[in-house]
Amino acid sequence: MANFTDFLQLKTVQGTAVQTPHHTLIPESQALIIKFPFGGFVWQRPTAVLVQQGGHSQRLPITDVTRLATWSVLAASLLLPLLLRLIFKQATDAQQETLTAQ
């Protein structure tokens, strides 16, 4: 029987270390793999870089500002009309209540 991981995989991989005179860098990336019987899809993004210097290790995360901004804009475009509708509806209801009271 086919396993779920045969179709969908999310894995974090570390690359070969890059040596510079002062530092050693190890790149880290994340890959999403979707396999179909007659095709597939791969999405890979850099996640961090591990910096080693004199026995001291530091992890510097890589933030995709463009992706963050585009998703924020899309989320705002979905939420803002809903929010405006709620505000508009509340205002209309309040207006109608005032008219009925009069």
């Binding site: 894995k11 991989v13 570390q14 690359g15 070969t16 790149p27 880290e28 990336s29 890959a31 793999i33 396999k35 007659f38 095709g39 597939g40 791969v42 890979q44 993004r45 850099p46």
Partner: peptide, 14 residues
């Protein structure tokens, strides 16, 4: 198709 999944190496990203 198998070769498509072999490219998931950090060298491809960096």
């Amino acid at each position: 198709i198998g070769k498509l999944f072999d490219v998931t190496r950090p060298d491809a990203v960096f």
